[in-house]
Simulated assay, not measured.
Amino acid sequence: MPEPRISIYPMLAVNFIGTLGLSLVLPFLIFLVERFGGNAIIYGLAASMYPVFQLVGGPLLGRWSDIYGRKKVLFLSQVGTFISWVIFLAAMLIPVTRIVDVRSGMLGSFVLTLPLLLIFIARAFDGLTGGNVSVANAYLADITEDKDRSSVYGKLSVSTNLGFIFGPALAGILSVTVYGEILPVIAAVLISFAGILMIAFLVPEPRTHGLHDP
């Protein structure tokens, strides 16, 4: 009896949700960094935290997915994203507490505050657990045949690009409300939680060389 085919679309939706949540913060991150005591260089460092730590976490999570299963590691990664957004939200809600004034020839003058420190921790933790991309690629490789792989990865690329298109647009719409930048961050928390639910209930553990829905 043939094995049931696994649809690629829940995985594409999870990938879209991941990039949507990530790109939500991009339009206003610089304003938050400046508000919490940072400068342009600190903004650049904050923006780089995710990709830098993803270089460390991505290969590790990809390796774990080979050992423990794609779904488990995808779930772990999405939970990490959710926790990082909760930390980010906390940074926006707590009082601005000065930790140290810094005057550096390399980094310029800025104030390290508690909210600014939490933003760095949130972005770094999200990057460290952000193995969605590498695991998603491995997952789709497991459930597709060689003849369909180019088409499937093309759709994965489309879902990624759509996330980066709609994320900043949604952030712009939400941030002009009376709630300001806090509303897009709340949206990111809810979106990442939706990703957890999708992985838990809609993404099955793949069997190598399965077939996807056309």
Rank of each mutant, 00 (worst) to 15 (best):
S48I: 06
K155F: 14
L140R: 03
W64N: 08
N137H: 10
L55E: 09
T129Y: 04
S192G: 07
S104G: 11
N137R: 13
R98K: 13
V133R: 05
G154D: 10
A187Y: 05
A91P: 01
E34F: 05
A138D: 02
P4I: 02
I173K: 09
F31S: 14
G108K: 01
V185G: 07
A136I: 09
E34K: 14
S104D: 07
F82I: 05
F125L: 15
A169V: 15
N132K: 09
A47Y: 11
I186F: 07
I83K: 00
I67M: 12
T129R: 06
T160G: 11
M198L: 15
L26K: 00
T177Q: 08
G37I: 01
R207W: 08
W64P: 01
E34G: 06
F125Q: 02
L211N: 10
I83P: 01
V102E: 07
A171E: 02
A194P: 01
I199G: 02
K72F: 10
L29Q: 12
L45D: 11
K72E: 09
I17S: 06
L22F: 14
N137S: 13
G38M: 02
S104K: 04
T113W: 00
E181G: 04
P59M: 13
R103F: 09
I173M: 14
H209Q: 12
L61A: 09
I199T: 08
T208D: 08
M1E: 10
V96H: 01
E205H: 04
F16L: 15
G105Q: 06
L76S: 12
K72W: 10
D148C: 02
I6Y: 08
L32Q: 11
G127I: 03
V111A: 13
E34A: 14
L12Y: 07
G180Q: 04
G172V: 12
I165Y: 03
F82A: 15
I196A: 10
A194Q: 00
L183H: 08
I173Y: 12
V133K: 03
G130M: 05
T19V: 13
L107E: 06
V111Q: 07
L117T: 11
V133Q: 13
I30P: 07
L107C: 07
